[in-house]
Amino acid sequence: MQTQRQVMSYALQRRATLEAMRRPTRPMMESDPCDADPLLIRSALHHGWPAGQECPVCAGEHLTLLAYVFGDQLGQYSGRIRQPSELEEMEQQFGEFKVYEVEVCPDCGWNFMILSYLLGDGRKRRPPRHEQTVEDIYG
């Protein structure tokens, strides 16, 4: 991606979380990293792409990546999952939006945000016109 900037990797936090999970006398963690929401697991199964490595917790082969996009210029499309090919198209259509990459294991429920970054060409644009969706009609 050509316009990727302000990259934030969470690799150190991920490693610390995994080490804390493997300690024999691990203290009670604030949130268990293997408690993925059922909707997150369903999203990983249907919209994610393979991570290319095994799960760090259960060594399963189904570790999946998801990319969520957020930004004022995205309008109603903010907060949705996008594929890498869609991100490449979007970086020319929108001025600035944030991407959060999350890894999810549907087998054991492991989930962790691994990367965040900004994309876009930097030009300020108005959000796209609101289009009526099924959620608007049926609530």
Rank of each mutant, 00 (worst) to 15 (best):
49 W>R: 15
28 M>Y: 05
74 L>N: 02
47 H>T: 03
43 S>Q: 13
41 I>A: 07
39 L>T: 04
26 R>L: 06
38 P>E: 11
35 D>P: 00
74 L>W: 06
81 I>K: 00
52 G>I: 08
48 G>K: 11
60 G>V: 05
42 R>E: 15
59 A>V: 02
38 P>K: 06
51 A>I: 12
66 L>T: 06
29 M>W: 00
62 H>P: 00
51 A>H: 11
58 C>W: 04
27 P>I: 00
80 R>K: 10
55 C>S: 05
81 I>H: 02
35 D>F: 01
26 R>V: 03
53 Q>F: 09
45 L>M: 15
50 P>E: 11
67 A>P: 03
40 L>T: 09
37 D>I: 01
47 H>V: 00
52 G>A: 13
73 Q>N: 06
26 R>W: 01
31 S>M: 08
78 S>A: 11
27 P>L: 07
69 V>D: 04
75 G>I: 06
75 G>E: 09
27 P>W: 01
34 C>S: 01
71 G>R: 06
70 F>R: 14
50 P>K: 13
46 H>A: 10
38 P>S: 08
26 R>S: 10
71 G>D: 10
28 M>L: 13
41 I>V: 15
56 P>Q: 01
61 E>V: 02
79 G>T: 02
76 Q>P: 03
51 A>L: 12
67 A>H: 08
56 P>F: 00
65 L>S: 12
75 G>Q: 05
